[in-house]
């Protein structure tokens, strides 16, 4: 039980996908202008990660031992179909959110955090529950990074930022600073 909790915390803080491994940077840069949108993007990512974790476990247990060369392609197919399902569901239930997330919703497919998760999960040989916790931790970590970035960006909206650093430049600087702050978690929970 304790082990599962550490997997979750480690994926969320210590090896944060966005701020430590630099995966999933495109939603981090693209959908972090408003806290509400960022939070929902994070939730969509958590959903896709968790469903992917179930599928990855299924594939790893029943399919891939017989056909290891199908690994990457089957992961991608699974991720793409789940993103498609999420997209359809959001479009049906919340057209506003669908418009806010825009191109970044289908782009979850190519979000390297998701594929990265699937590959990490396989390489580390996690079982079903461990994989689920890892997915949850990774998703929460992404959400945390997104919300932090969005709340900082909202406050800098009124700042007199020098012309050279407006918009994306400042976002990259903030991302770097956040990443520096997250370095403090290095080595946490490993001892």
């Amino acid at each position: 039980m304790g082990e599962l909790f550490w997997i979750l915390l480690s994926a969320m803080l210590v090896n944060n996908f966005t701020l430590h491994l630099f995966l999933g940077l495109c939603p981090f840069m693209g959908v972090s202008a408003k806290v509400e949108t960022a939070l929902r993007m994070g939730l969509a990512n958590i959903f896709v990660l968790v469903t992917t974790s179930v599928c990855v476990w299924f594939l790893n247990t029943f399919v891939l031992p017989h056909a290891p060369y199908l690994r990457l392609i089957s992961f991608i197919v699974v991720i793409a179909s789940f993103v498609q399902i999420t997209e359809m569901a959001i479009k049906k239930f919340s057209p506003t959110l669908f418009r806010q997330l825009g191109i970044f919703l289908p782009l979850i497919t190519t979000n390297c955090a998701i594929l990265g998760y699937a590959i990490f999960n396989t390489n580390r040989g996690y079982d079903f529950l461990e994989g689920l916790m890892f997915a949850l931790g990774a998703g929460l970590g992404l959400t945390l990074a997104l919300v932090l970035m969005a709340s900082i960006r909202e406050t800098t909206e009124t700042a007199s930022v020098p012309a050279a650093a407006r918009n994306m430049g400042l976002v990259l600087i903030i991302a770097g600073s956040l990443s520096l702050a997250f370095m403090g978690f290095a080595g946490l929970f490993t001892a």
Partner: peptide, 10 residues
């Protein structure tokens, strides 16, 4: 880069 005193985050 944040616009000087009073506007920085860190």
């Amino acid at each position: 880069i944040f616009g000087g005193l009073g506007q920085n985050v860190f």
